[in-house]
């Protein structure tokens, strides 16, 4: 009887296992499984059927056959379109991350230096725009940036320009939209980091004759390193795959991988090539993600 009890108990997971298990199952179900399906589709062949691709395995007469079609990946290498689309996405992601950092750091710094009560209000103001759907906010930008829009109307009214500036449907509009949309994701981790800094370090530095700029550069920035990395990753990674903003604000020459993927999936009905594109994109993004993980791990070590 005791033995039975013990076996039963070992079958019921402990509290610790349950707590770890839930996010683990979540990741398996909503990340790993879909990724396997996409990888599977990337090795099939496009077909006119439901679903529009071939099966990769067959089982007939006790023979199990696995057929991997590698041509979808070969296509990606053959046509310069895909490579330039990846590079285009990486370029947009890089420069908008940089712009977010340049705008977001002073904001986060100022908020962390404000008094306690206004800090919450200021952070709320940063986050509030994200409560509205991104689509609606991007449409609002279309109204601001168009030739007859608010910005051009204002500039013409003040007499700074006589011809409307062409901003909408260009790469400039994409950068504006991306920086606007992702700025909160830069400010939040930076603020969380900056607010924890120990003021006495700066006081000590100034006692020893360090200038304000020198203390900022030699103390605040190095201490904020993990916040900067976290903010940059939170912006960079989703911007690489961004589709909505370049689609609505960008011009025809805005070449980003999200749009090419859409085209393969919808215009060419080629789910396998679209899947191959997605798999390669994920592989490219693994590099910065690993980098991020390593710096996180280092920070944990430093704390311990």
């Amino acid at each position: 009887m005791k033995k039975l009890n013990r076996t039963l108990q070992s079958l019921i997971p402990s509290g610790r296992q349950l707590v770890i298990g839930v996010p683990f199952i979540w990741l398996c179900l909503f990340f790993l499984l879909p990724f396997f399906i996409v990888t599977k589709i990337s090795f099939t062949e496009a077909a006119l059927a439901i679903p529009p691709y071939s099966e990769i395995y067959t089982y007939a007469e006790q023979k199990f056959q696995l057929l991997l079609n590698l041509s979808n990946y070969a296509i990606l290498g053959d046509d310069e379109l895909y490579i330039s689309a990846y590079l285009g996405s990486l370029k947009v992601a890089f420069f908008s991350t940089l712009a977010c950092l340049l705008v977001g750091f002073p904001m986060a710094y100022a908020i962390s230096k404000a008094n306690k009560e206004s800090q919450n209000v200021l952070m709320l103001l940063i986050m509030m725009p994200t409560w509205t759907a991104i689509l609606i906010r991007v449409y609002a930008w279309m109204g601001i940036l168009s030739n007859n829009g608010l910005l051009n109307g204002f500039l013409m009214w003040t007499g700074v320009i006589s011809q409307p500036l062409e901003i909408l449907n260009t790469n400039v509009a994409v950068y504006i939209g991306v920086v606007y949309a992702y700025l909160p994701f830069m400010v939040m981790p930076l603020y969380a980091n900056l607010v924890k800094h120990d003021e006495s370090l700066l006081e000590a530095a100034s006692d020893l004759g360090s200038s304000k700029f020198n203390s900022f550069w030699k103390i605040t920035v190095p201490l904020a390193r993990n916040g900067i990395i976290a903010g940059c990753m939170l912006v960079f990674i989703p911007v690489v795959g961004e589709f909505v903003i370049p689609e609505l604000l960008g011009g025809p020459e805005t070449l980003m991988i999200g749009r090419v993927l859409w085209q393969e999936f919808f215009n060419n009905r080629d789910w396998p090539v679209a899947s191959a594109l997605a798999v390669v994109m994920l592989l490219i993004l693994i590099v910065p993600i690993l980098f991020f993980n390593r710096s996180q791990a280092k920070e944990m070590e430093g704390r311990a």
């Binding site: 046509d79 025809p252 020459e253 060419n268």
Partner: peptide, 18 residues
């Protein structure tokens, strides 16, 4: 046919990119 649609889409992408 699908194979030719791909050729057309590619040409059209070239037009759009200029």
């Amino acid at each position: 046919p699908i194979s030719f649609a791909r050729v057309m889409t590619r040409d059209w992408t070239r037009v759009k990119l200029g």
